[in-house]
Design a binder for these strands. Structure first.
Lengths: 211, 211
DNA sequence: GACAAAACAATATGACCATATTGTTTTATG
DNA sequence: CATAAAACAATATGGTCATATTGTTTTGTC
């Protein structure tokens, strides 16, 4: 038996590493596989079996780390939201503090964050959580933390004024929601050029230029 | 068996076009039940059996009118999109041609169109179609028709100038996408007051007031 | 009134899914 | 190195799903 056992090769794995470290790597690997599956086939059409196959691990291994599907989904959502926060932290440093900073950030965010498999997977999870009480109870708090973390991160980027705080929050929320809806509506047609035009229109509106 | 004569008993039954009419009523009834199910439990968690129970019809009846699930979903999407177009046609007449027309329309649309079970069901279908090629091929054209119908309907409502056409399209698209994303993101938290604030902020931005 | 097609109904089928169960290997630590 | 816990693996189970199948009733037309 065990002819086709999906073992990790030990040549690359750190021997001195701890059990905990290996466990974290396995969890990450499974979450990444889940991300792929959710993006490719949608949340409900992705079975545990498919995630297992995509990750190249055994069903038992997945079950050990994520006893239920909700456990896996919550972990995947947390993983994706955490990566998004890290993206903003990085992007913030790379963007010059000129007057186009905001528009550049929006456009870059669209390209590098929203039009990715990672965001597609997150969208699947969010929509699934809408009609699944248990899942929503797990995911909603993480989503709220994510929103706050990003707002805190970008607070000093937008020039704004005195009422910049509330204004920033509103503009960020509108932008985020608009991009999400753009994926759902116009993404279904698949016209990337048209979507970019909409993004540009949003930047114009949000920065008050060209009016 | 049971060869009773159908010659009499015409007083109570519909006189003409009975079969076609009854068929349309049945189809509508099933689509409405599907809408309920999709909104309450999500697309993939709604089984044909549940739609059948909600509609109070037999499985055979549903199968007769919609041989496959995709047939049912396409019909439901078409039904919902058609109702949305009718909503805009009605709303357009009710709104005075003052300078607040646009803002009023946005707010009314949010209340009466987006925060409804009908739109929740549509959202479920759109997201499901993202990762289901067959379903997308059926739904995407209907969605495109819907978008064009609404744009044509509202073309004369926004003052706009020469470039009003392109500008209107962009503003409508952004607003529509923003509301959809608002449902997905902030709707998960369930704070209706916060969402209304975002809508107000969008109206301010789109109309250029208070800047 | 005969007759075919449409409409409606009830049951059957085969696939798939989440998870439970049971067994084996690896790792940390005394 | 003994040993217990953690990690990993293979199979089993009960339920649900979409759809196929087959049978019955209703309706339009000749």
């Amino acid at each position: 038996m065990l002819m086709t056992s999906p073992r990790q090769d030990k040549s690359t794995a750190a021997p001195a590493g701890k059990r905990e470290e290996k466990s974290a790597a396995m969890r990450r690997r499974i979450c990444e596989a889940a991300t792929e599956c959710f993006a490719a086939r949608g949340y409900h059409r992705s079975s545990i079996k498919q995630v297992v196959d995509a990750a190249g691990v055994s069903l038992g291994a997945l079950q050990h780390h994520f006893p239920s599907k909700d456990d896996l989904v919550e972990a995947t959502a947390t993983h994706l939201l955490g990566r998004s926060v890290k993206w903003f932290q990085r992007a913030k440093l790379n963007i010059a503090q000129d007057k186009n900073a905001f528009g550049d950030m929006i456009r870059q965010s669209w390209r590098e964050q929203f039009t990715t498999d990672e965001y597609a997977a997150l969208l699947e999870i969010l929509v699934a959580a809408r009609t699944d009480e248990d899942l929503r109870a797990r995911v909603a708090p993480r989503l709220d933390d994510w929103r706050r973390a990003i707002e805190a991160e970008l607070r000093d980027l937008v020039p704004g004024g005195d009422d910049g705080a509330g204004e920033l929050e509103a503009v960020l929320t509108i932008g985020r929601c608009m991009m999400t809806g753009l994926l759902v509506h116009d993404g279904l047609i698949g016209d990337a050029g048209h979507m970019r035009k909409v993004i540009d229109a949003w930047v114009r509106l949000a920065t008050g230029s060209g009016r």
